[in-house]
Design a protein around this nucleic acid. Structure first.
Lengths: 136, 136
DNA sequence: CATAGACCTTCCAATCATGGTAAGGTCAAG
DNA sequence: CTTGACCTTACCATGATTGGAAGGTCTATG
């Protein structure tokens, strides 16, 4: 299986497979005589693992940790749970930030006529001239 | 007012002020004989506008648009509202994605003993071996 | 067998917004 | 006059990903 097929089978682009190899996230596979990378089924399995972890928002570094734990048959599940829960916390912090932005913007947009007149509470808020809400 | 004072007064770091100038978001200010940038009050006002827009999650490009609209005394507020509402939509999309990640992770973490045993539903899910939830 | 085109290889660059650092010039207080 | 806090420009790094160029290889068809 060459890199294009591994990419199709795993959902990780060939470009990214090479990148993950270059930064040491995954191991370099064997090569053919003509220097093509050759992937075995278990290597594709690793790629799928990486893909899923990235989809769940784990950073490449966190993914590396999880991969290590996955391959360590003696690990305690507590270690994995720790990585997951701190990631959940980070995600929730980010969500709260975005929600706060949305709240402020919705308020501003609600106050804005959205018509042909140049009067605009949104710009006024950005300019800090007539702070309506959420200003700090 | 030199760049450090303008940075303090606006909340935009001196580094970023120079960057915004280099990409054309803000205009180059006058210089002293010794080549120091000098900021007037209205230029600091622009910086504060930029800071607030960035805080609300607008990209630099969107901020440039808003800045243009702010300085265009003849603009219709509808244009501004459009920028704001499409930004709100983008933020909400992002929030939904993050919430979906959190939901999956919480389910996995809930199923995980978090003890000393090597058994771990989180890793099993990542590996795609025993898809529990949210797998796709 | 030759050739086209779909692969593969490496290397380099760009993205976005920000921080850092180094080497040098300037200014104000002591 | 020196010290230290500022300023200047010019690079480099981040994180994850995409893009391209220049060249080698494989496969199917004429």
């Amino acid at each position: 299986m060459n890199i294009g097929q591994a990419a199709n089978a795993s959902g990780v682009s060939a470009k990214m497979i090479r990148y993950y190899e270059s930064i040491g996230l995954i191991r370099a596979p064997l090569r053919t005589d003509s220097n093509y990378r050759v992937y075995r089924e278990d290597e594709v399995h690793v790629l799928r693992f990486v893909k899923r972890a990235r989809t769940l928002g784990f950073s490449v570094e966190e993914t590396a940790t999880l991969l290590g734990l996955w391959q360590d048959k003696t690990r305690a599940s507590a270690e994995v749970k720790d990585v997951a829960t701190s990631h959940i916390t980070a995600l929730e912090t980010k969500i709260a930030e975005l929600q706060s932005m949305v709240k402020t913007l919705k308020h501003l947009a609600h106050c804005c006529g959205g018509d042909n007149r140049p009067d605009c509470p949104i710009l006024d808020d950005l300019a800090g001239e007539h702070p309506i809400s959420g200003a700090h």
